[in-house]
Design a protein around this nucleic acid. Structure first.
Ligand code: FES
Ligand code: FES
Lengths: 145, 145
DNA sequence: TTAATTTCAGATAAATTACTCTTAATTAAA
DNA sequence: TTTAATTAAGAGTAATTTATCTGAAATTAA
C-alpha cells in the first residue's frame, strides 16, 4: 500500500505540528516527540535533523536542548515540510503513474486528481502550522501549555 | 516519495483501462500490454494473474491467449482494481499517518482530506472502466480498434 | 505431430524505504 | 570539574516493494 505521503513525511508533519503547539521559546526533545507521537527515536532524529538543516527547525544540543520551529513561525507551512521531505514531485505527478500529468493528454483520473491535489495544496500553502495545529483534536496534542 | 497508489496498482489501472479500450472478445497478451504501456513484462504478468484470480480478468493460455476484462464489463470499476491490489485501507486511513482517521479526533488535514478522498472514490465507484477509458486522451490508448 | 506462443508458478535478485546502533560533540546542571 | 542529557553523524541492518529469471503447462497453428 501507499498513501499520499511517505512514512518519513507523515512523521515530519506530526512532529512539526507538535512543535507548533508547544509554547514558543521552549525546546522539545526527540525523546518527548518520539514517546508522545510513537515514532521510532533514531529515525525521528534523522528526520528532525534534516528539517533543521533545511532551515525549517532550530536545534540546540546539550542538556536543555531540543528542537523548535524556526522563527518567524507564521511563515512555516506544511507544504514546505512536504517539499523538504518528499520533494516537489507530487505536485505534478500523474496519479495513474503515467510519465507526465498533462491537460492535453489527461489520464482517466486526471480531472478528479488535479482537483484533489490543488484543493489539498491550497490548504497546505495558505494556512501556516499554527493555524493548522489549532484545528487538531488528537489527544496527544492537547495539554502542551 | 509516495503517491496515492502503489506502483503495482498504477500498472494494474493502466492495464485494465487498456483492456477496456480493446474490442470485446479479443484477448490481449502481456507482451502487447508490456510494450505499449512500458511496464516490466514479468512483473505485469504477476499483476494480471492476480487480477484474474480475483475475478476481474479472464485469462487464456496458448497461442491465441491473453487477458481480457471479465464480463459483464460494465460492472468493473477502478475502485475494485485498487481494492484488489492495494487493499481497502486507503479508504479509511489518516493522511497524516495517525492510527485512525476519525471525525471525533481529526488531524489537521482531516476535513480537507475526507472531502477530497470521497470525491475521488465517488468517481472510482460510479463510473465503470469503459466510461473512464473513453475520457482518456493518452496516445497509447488510441487506435485499439 | 511438431513447433510456436502464450499464461502459470515459484524462486531469486535488486532497489528502496524504514529502522537501529554506536560514537562523538555540545551544553547545562550537579 | 564531573556527570548527565541532549543533538550530530555515519554506518549498519531489516523489511518491503519492485523486478527478473527459469521452466512447466496449455493451446493453437502449421
Ligand atoms: S494525467 Fe494522470 S493525473 Fe494528470
Ligand atoms: S484523522 Fe487524519 S485524515 Fe482523518
Amino acid at each position: 500500500m501507499s498513501l499520499l505521503f511517505s512514512r518519513q513525511c507523515e512523521y515530519a508533519l506530526q512532529a512539526v505540528l507538535y512543535l507548533a503547539k508547544t509554547p514558543s521559546g521552549k525546546m522539545t526533545s526527540i525523546k518527548e516527540l518520539s514517546a508522545k507521537l510513537d515514532i521510532p527515536y533514531h529515525y525521528l532524529a534523522k528526520i528532525l535533523q534534516s528539517l533543521a538543516i533545511k532551515g525549517l527547525l532550530l536545534s540546540e544540543k546539550g542538556r536543555t536542548g531540543g528542537f523548535a520551529l524556526r522563527i518567524p513561525v507564521e511563515h512555516i507551512t506544511l507544504a514546505q515540510v512536504i517539499d523538504a521531505v518528499d520533494g516537489p514531485a507530487i505536485k505534478h505527478s500523474c496519479v495513474m503513474g503515467f510519465g507526465e500529468c498533462s491537460e492535453d493528454n489527461p489520464c482517466a483520473l486526471h480531472n478528479e486528481w488535479v482537483h484533489l491535489r490543488t484543493g489539498l495544496f491550497d490548504v497546505l500553502n495558505d494556512k501556516n502550522v499554527i493555524q493548522l495545529a489549532r484545528e487538531m483534536k488528537k489527544p496527544v496534542y492537547e495539554m502542551l501549555a
